[in-house]
């Protein structure tokens, strides 16, 4: 159990939780969305600035657990330069990462800091915490307003 816990709360996760990158309202922004996890009552706002079809900057605000904050923080750096299509592909990859039964066959180097989220796999109850920011960003891009994890 403790090994799993060490994997979940790796230094990278804890440090992103404590000092998230790109936290705060992005001013100005082209689009925003709110994500809501009804299970725990956490709310997360994601703000996007676009340059044409590509993401120029993403920031977030809101309350959340270490997993959701770290995931949001890492996301804000990973998605820069992506368009809606490549973001969808990235989200699919993150979902695979978080829910795969077997150790995913992905090169950790290629994953970068996202690899820190691999530990969530052993805690199925926490997967929604890790995906909230990503789904909220996708909603912001699609301008669909608000989403929930349910």
């Amino acid at each position: 159990m403790d090994d799993n816990l060490e994997d979940l709360y790796q230094e990278i996760i804890l440090s992103h939780n404590k000092r998230p990158r790109n936290e705060g309202i992005l001013d100005p922004h082209d689009s925003e969305a709110e994500g809501y996890n009804p299970l725990c009552g956490d709310r997360l706002q994601v703000y996007v600035k676009l340059a044409g079809p590509t993401i120029q900057a993403v920031q977030f605000t809101g309350q959340g657990c270490a997993i959701s904050r770290a995931s949001a923080s890492i996301m804000t750096e990973v998605v820069k330069g992506m368009d809606e299509h490549s973001l969808d592909a990235k989200i699919a990859e993150v979902m695979e990462l978080l829910t795969a039964k077997e150790e995913p066959m992905i090169d950790p180097l290629e994953l970068g800091e996202l690899a820190a989220l691999l530990g969530v796999r052993k805690f199925p109850a926490r997967v929604k915490c890790a995906t909230l920011a990503w789904h909220t960003l996708a909603a912001a891009l699609k301008q669909s307003g608000s989403i929930t994890t349910e």
Binding site: L5, Y9, D42, R126
Partner: peptide
């Protein structure tokens, strides 16, 4: 220092 969810997960272990 920690969100209740993180507290709950660690206590569970």
């Amino acid at each position: 220092a920690a969100h209740p969810h993180d507290v709950g997960t660690i206590l569970d272990t």
